[in-house]
Protein backbone atom coordinates (compact mmCIF):
# COMPACT_ATOMS: atom_id res chain seq x y z
CA UNK A 1 0.00 0.00 0.00
CA UNK A 2 2.90 2.30 0.75
CA UNK A 3 4.25 2.02 -2.79
CA UNK A 4 0.80 2.16 -4.41
CA UNK A 5 0.09 5.35 -2.49
CA UNK A 6 2.27 7.50 -4.74
CA UNK A 7 0.88 6.65 -8.19
CA UNK A 8 -2.67 6.78 -6.89
CA UNK A 9 -1.93 10.13 -5.29
CA UNK A 10 -0.80 11.35 -8.72
CA UNK A 11 -3.96 9.98 -10.38
CA UNK A 12 -6.15 11.56 -7.70
CA UNK A 13 -4.37 14.92 -7.72
CA UNK A 14 -4.58 14.99 -11.53
CA UNK A 15 -8.32 14.36 -11.43
CA UNK A 16 -8.72 17.06 -8.80
CA UNK A 17 -6.71 19.49 -10.95
CA UNK A 18 -8.73 18.67 -14.07
CA UNK A 19 -11.81 19.48 -12.04
CA UNK A 20 -10.30 22.93 -11.37
CA UNK A 21 -8.99 23.52 -14.90
CA UNK A 22 -11.94 22.69 -17.12
CA UNK A 23 -14.28 25.33 -15.62
CA UNK A 24 -11.74 28.01 -16.60
CA UNK A 25 -12.39 27.30 -20.29
CA UNK A 26 -16.11 26.74 -19.71
CA UNK A 27 -16.62 29.98 -17.81
CA UNK A 28 -14.55 32.07 -20.24
CA UNK A 29 -16.65 30.60 -23.06
CA UNK A 30 -19.92 31.29 -21.24
CA UNK A 31 -18.85 34.86 -20.52
CA UNK A 32 -18.09 35.38 -24.19
CA UNK A 33 -21.39 33.85 -25.29
CA UNK A 34 -23.17 36.15 -22.87
CA UNK A 35 -21.27 39.13 -24.27
CA UNK A 36 -22.67 38.47 -27.75
CA UNK A 37 -26.22 38.31 -26.39
CA UNK A 38 -26.64 34.57 -26.46
CA UNK A 39 -29.32 33.46 -24.00
CA UNK A 40 -26.96 31.89 -21.46
CA UNK A 41 -28.95 30.52 -18.52
CA UNK A 42 -28.58 28.02 -15.71
CA UNK A 43 -29.31 24.97 -17.85
CA UNK A 44 -27.01 25.97 -20.71
CA UNK A 45 -24.26 26.87 -18.22
CA UNK A 46 -24.58 23.50 -16.51
CA UNK A 47 -24.47 21.82 -19.90
CA UNK A 48 -21.22 23.55 -20.80
CA UNK A 49 -19.58 23.07 -17.38
CA UNK A 50 -20.47 19.41 -17.00
CA UNK A 51 -19.76 18.41 -20.60
CA UNK A 52 -16.39 20.17 -20.50
CA UNK A 53 -15.51 18.53 -17.20
CA UNK A 54 -16.32 15.13 -18.64
CA UNK A 55 -15.18 15.31 -22.28
CA UNK A 56 -12.42 17.90 -22.25
CA UNK A 57 -11.41 16.61 -18.84
CA UNK A 58 -10.70 13.09 -20.08
CA UNK A 59 -8.30 14.49 -22.68
CA UNK A 60 -6.58 16.70 -20.12
CA UNK A 61 -6.44 13.97 -17.51
CA UNK A 62 -3.77 12.04 -19.39
CA UNK A 63 -1.72 15.19 -19.97
CA UNK A 64 -1.90 16.24 -16.32
CA UNK A 65 -0.98 12.74 -15.06
CA UNK A 66 2.17 12.76 -17.19
CA UNK A 67 3.05 16.31 -16.09
CA UNK A 68 2.48 15.57 -12.42
CA UNK A 69 4.34 12.25 -12.52
CA UNK A 70 7.46 13.98 -13.87
CA UNK A 71 7.17 17.07 -11.68
CA UNK A 72 6.48 15.25 -8.42
CA UNK A 73 9.24 12.69 -9.01
CA UNK A 74 11.69 15.50 -9.56
CA UNK A 75 10.38 17.29 -6.46
CA UNK A 76 10.78 14.17 -4.33
CA UNK A 77 14.50 14.29 -5.14
CA UNK A 78 14.77 18.06 -4.78
CA UNK A 79 13.33 17.98 -1.26
CA UNK A 80 16.56 16.41 -0.04
CA UNK A 81 18.56 19.44 -1.13
CA UNK A 82 16.48 22.31 0.16
CA UNK A 83 14.96 23.63 3.35
CA UNK A 84 11.75 24.80 1.70
CA UNK A 85 8.64 23.16 3.06
CA UNK A 86 7.63 20.06 1.06
CA UNK A 87 4.05 21.16 0.73
CA UNK A 88 5.04 24.38 -1.02
CA UNK A 89 7.55 22.59 -3.21
CA UNK A 90 4.91 20.12 -4.40
CA UNK A 91 2.42 22.92 -4.92
CA UNK A 92 4.98 24.85 -6.93
CA UNK A 93 5.81 21.73 -8.92
CA UNK A 94 2.11 21.32 -9.71
CA UNK A 95 1.90 24.91 -10.98
CA UNK A 96 5.04 24.56 -13.09
CA UNK A 97 3.95 21.25 -14.58
CA UNK A 98 0.55 22.64 -15.59
CA UNK A 99 2.19 25.71 -17.14
CA UNK A 100 4.68 23.53 -19.00
CA UNK A 101 1.98 21.09 -20.15
CA UNK A 102 -0.18 23.92 -21.52
CA UNK A 103 2.82 25.44 -23.29
CA UNK A 104 4.02 22.16 -24.79
CA UNK A 105 0.53 21.20 -25.95
CA UNK A 106 0.63 24.29 -28.15
CA UNK A 107 4.27 24.17 -29.22
CA UNK A 108 4.72 20.45 -29.78
CA UNK A 109 1.30 19.01 -30.47
CA UNK A 110 -1.41 21.27 -31.80
CA UNK A 111 0.23 24.53 -32.89
CA UNK A 112 -2.93 26.17 -31.62
CA UNK A 113 -4.30 26.91 -28.19
CA UNK A 114 -6.62 23.99 -27.59
CA UNK A 115 -7.97 25.34 -24.32
CA UNK A 116 -10.08 28.45 -24.78
CA UNK A 117 -9.51 29.39 -21.15
CA UNK A 118 -5.73 29.43 -21.63
CA UNK A 119 -5.70 32.05 -24.40
CA UNK A 120 -5.49 35.06 -22.11
CA UNK A 121 -2.90 35.95 -19.48
CA UNK A 122 -5.52 35.80 -16.74
CA UNK A 123 -6.56 32.36 -17.97
CA UNK A 124 -2.96 31.16 -17.91
CA UNK A 125 -2.49 32.39 -14.34
CA UNK A 126 -5.68 30.59 -13.29
CA UNK A 127 -4.30 27.37 -14.79
CA UNK A 128 -1.07 27.77 -12.82
CA UNK A 129 -3.08 28.34 -9.65
CA UNK A 130 -5.09 25.17 -10.38
CA UNK A 131 -1.79 23.32 -10.74
CA UNK A 132 -0.60 24.83 -7.45
CA UNK A 133 -3.64 23.47 -5.64
CA UNK A 134 -3.21 20.14 -7.44
CA UNK A 135 0.35 19.89 -6.11
CA UNK A 136 -0.80 20.82 -2.63
CA UNK A 137 -3.51 18.16 -2.82
CA UNK A 138 -0.90 15.61 -3.86
CA UNK A 139 1.21 16.50 -0.83
CA UNK A 140 -1.80 16.13 1.47
CA UNK A 141 -2.43 12.65 0.05
CA UNK A 142 1.12 11.36 0.42
CA UNK A 143 1.74 12.90 3.81
CA UNK A 144 -0.77 10.63 5.54
CA UNK A 145 -0.94 6.88 5.82
CA UNK A 146 -3.45 5.35 3.45
CA UNK A 147 -5.34 2.10 3.55
CA UNK A 148 -7.29 0.25 0.84
CA UNK A 149 -10.19 2.73 0.97
CA UNK A 150 -8.07 5.32 -0.84
CA UNK A 151 -7.61 3.12 -3.92
CA UNK A 152 -11.16 1.79 -3.84
CA UNK A 153 -12.53 5.30 -3.71
CA UNK A 154 -10.27 6.38 -6.54
CA UNK A 155 -11.54 3.63 -8.85
CA UNK A 156 -15.11 4.39 -7.78
CA UNK A 157 -14.74 8.07 -8.63
CA UNK A 158 -13.08 7.25 -11.96
CA UNK A 159 -15.96 4.94 -12.80
CA UNK A 160 -18.52 7.61 -11.90
CA UNK A 161 -16.57 10.10 -14.02
CA UNK A 162 -16.89 7.85 -17.07
CA UNK A 163 -20.58 7.13 -16.43
CA UNK A 164 -21.15 10.89 -16.15
CA UNK A 165 -20.49 11.12 -19.90
CA UNK A 166 -23.47 8.86 -20.66
CA UNK A 167 -25.63 10.75 -18.18
CA UNK A 168 -24.86 14.12 -19.75
CA UNK A 169 -25.37 12.84 -23.27
CA UNK A 170 -28.85 11.55 -22.48
CA UNK A 171 -29.83 14.56 -20.40
CA UNK A 172 -28.64 17.30 -22.77
CA UNK A 173 -28.08 15.79 -26.22
CA UNK A 174 -30.23 12.66 -26.54
CA UNK A 175 -30.01 12.75 -30.37
CA UNK A 176 -26.26 12.47 -30.22
CA UNK A 177 -26.50 9.79 -27.52
CA UNK A 178 -28.92 7.80 -29.67
CA UNK A 179 -26.58 8.07 -32.64
CA UNK A 180 -23.92 6.31 -30.55
CA UNK A 181 -26.27 3.34 -30.37
CA UNK A 182 -26.78 3.38 -34.14
CA UNK A 183 -30.24 4.88 -34.43
CA UNK A 184 -31.75 8.25 -35.31
CA UNK A 185 -33.88 9.44 -32.42
CA UNK A 186 -36.01 11.77 -34.55
CA UNK A 187 -36.99 8.86 -36.80
CA UNK A 188 -38.92 7.33 -33.91
CA UNK A 189 -42.44 8.36 -32.92
CA UNK A 190 -42.99 10.55 -29.86
CA UNK A 191 -43.79 7.66 -27.51
CA UNK A 192 -40.67 5.77 -28.50
CA UNK A 193 -38.52 8.89 -28.14
CA UNK A 194 -39.96 9.58 -24.72
CA UNK A 195 -39.47 6.00 -23.56
CA UNK A 196 -35.88 5.88 -24.73
CA UNK A 197 -34.89 9.23 -23.26
CA UNK A 198 -36.45 8.56 -19.86
CA UNK A 199 -35.27 4.94 -19.59
CA UNK A 200 -31.71 5.53 -20.74
CA UNK A 201 -31.33 8.65 -18.61
CA UNK A 202 -32.70 6.89 -15.56
CA UNK A 203 -30.49 3.85 -16.24
CA UNK A 204 -27.27 5.85 -16.34
CA UNK A 205 -28.15 8.36 -13.65
CA UNK A 206 -29.08 5.56 -11.26
CA UNK A 207 -25.79 3.74 -11.70
CA UNK A 208 -23.96 7.06 -11.36
CA UNK A 209 -25.73 7.78 -8.06
CA UNK A 210 -25.17 4.22 -6.81
CA UNK A 211 -21.46 4.63 -7.45
CA UNK A 212 -21.22 7.98 -5.71
CA UNK A 213 -23.07 6.54 -2.70
CA UNK A 214 -20.65 3.61 -2.76
CA UNK A 215 -17.68 5.96 -2.77
CA UNK A 216 -19.07 7.92 0.18
CA UNK A 217 -20.24 5.02 2.34
CA UNK A 218 -17.89 2.26 1.15
CA UNK A 219 -20.92 -0.02 1.35
CA UNK A 220 -20.30 -2.68 -1.34
CA UNK A 221 -24.01 -3.08 -1.99
CA UNK A 222 -24.09 0.18 -3.95
CA UNK A 223 -21.30 -0.95 -6.26
CA UNK A 224 -22.87 -4.35 -6.64
CA UNK A 225 -26.19 -2.75 -7.58
CA UNK A 226 -24.49 -0.81 -10.39
CA UNK A 227 -22.74 -3.98 -11.55
CA UNK A 228 -25.96 -5.98 -11.62
CA UNK A 229 -27.66 -3.38 -13.80
CA UNK A 230 -24.91 -3.50 -16.45
CA UNK A 231 -24.63 -7.27 -16.35
CA UNK A 232 -28.40 -7.33 -16.82
CA UNK A 233 -28.05 -5.04 -19.82
CA UNK A 234 -25.45 -7.38 -21.34
CA UNK A 235 -27.60 -10.46 -20.76
CA UNK A 236 -30.72 -8.92 -22.24
CA UNK A 237 -28.75 -7.45 -25.13
CA UNK A 238 -27.80 -11.02 -26.09
CA UNK A 239 -31.37 -12.12 -25.38
CA UNK A 240 -32.64 -9.51 -27.85
CA UNK A 241 -30.12 -10.65 -30.46
CA UNK A 242 -30.61 -14.38 -30.19
CA UNK A 243 -34.23 -14.70 -29.04
CA UNK A 244 -35.89 -11.71 -30.69
CA UNK A 245 -33.65 -11.61 -33.76
CA UNK A 246 -32.34 -8.01 -33.49
CA UNK A 247 -29.12 -7.10 -35.25
CA UNK A 248 -25.91 -8.29 -33.66
CA UNK A 249 -23.99 -5.57 -31.87
CA UNK A 250 -20.94 -5.50 -29.65
CA UNK A 251 -22.34 -3.14 -27.04
CA UNK A 252 -22.63 -6.08 -24.64
CA UNK A 253 -18.82 -6.09 -24.34
CA UNK A 254 -18.93 -2.54 -22.98
CA UNK A 255 -21.80 -3.54 -20.70
CA UNK A 256 -19.80 -6.45 -19.29
CA UNK A 257 -16.87 -4.10 -18.61
CA UNK A 258 -19.16 -1.54 -16.98
CA UNK A 259 -20.71 -4.33 -14.90
CA UNK A 260 -17.41 -5.88 -13.90
CA UNK A 261 -15.75 -2.65 -12.77
CA UNK A 262 -18.09 -1.87 -9.80
CA UNK A 263 -18.52 -5.56 -9.06
CA UNK A 264 -14.76 -5.94 -8.57
CA UNK A 265 -14.78 -2.86 -6.36
CA UNK A 266 -17.60 -4.38 -4.29
CA UNK A 267 -15.74 -7.65 -3.81
CA UNK A 268 -12.50 -5.81 -3.04
CA UNK A 269 -14.25 -3.94 -0.23
CA UNK A 270 -15.67 -7.21 1.13
CA UNK A 271 -12.23 -8.83 0.96
CA UNK A 272 -10.40 -6.02 2.72
CA UNK A 273 -13.11 -5.62 5.35
CA UNK A 274 -12.89 -9.32 6.12
CA UNK A 275 -9.11 -9.07 6.29
CA UNK A 276 -9.32 -6.21 8.75
Amino acid sequence: MKIAKYPFAVFSAALFTVMLITPISSISNLLWLNSVDMPVGIISSLEVLLFDFQRLGILLYGVVIIGFAIAFSFTAVLINFTNISSKYLYALAGAVSIGAAMYLMVELLFESELLGGNRTFVGKVLHWIAGFFGGYFYYSLISKNKNYTFIVRFFGILYAYLILGFVLNWVFTPESAAADYGFVLKDLNDNAQNALIRDFTSFFISTFIFTILGVITLNPTWFLAAGIIYYGAAVFNLYAIFIHGTNYNQIYIGEIILGSWPTIIAFAILYFKKKE
Binding site: N29, L33, M38, P39, E47
Partner: peptide, 20 residues
Protein backbone atom coordinates in the same frame (compact mmCIF):
# COMPACT_ATOMS: atom_id res chain seq x y z
CA UNK B 1 -18.92 30.32 -32.92
CA UNK B 2 -22.04 31.56 -31.15
CA UNK B 3 -24.14 28.85 -32.79
CA UNK B 4 -22.85 25.57 -34.14
CA UNK B 5 -23.90 21.95 -34.59
CA UNK B 6 -20.48 20.66 -33.59
CA UNK B 7 -18.26 20.41 -30.55
CA UNK B 8 -14.57 21.19 -30.32
CA UNK B 9 -12.14 18.41 -31.21
CA UNK B 10 -10.87 18.68 -27.63
CA UNK B 11 -14.34 17.60 -26.50
CA UNK B 12 -15.18 21.05 -25.15
CA UNK B 13 -18.52 22.66 -25.82
CA UNK B 14 -18.16 25.60 -28.20
CA UNK B 15 -21.72 26.72 -27.81
CA UNK B 16 -24.80 25.00 -26.42
CA UNK B 17 -26.83 26.89 -29.03
CA UNK B 18 -27.60 25.84 -32.60
CA UNK B 19 -29.74 28.75 -33.71
CA UNK B 20 -30.53 32.36 -32.97
Amino acid sequence: PAITYGIDYSGAVISPFTQK
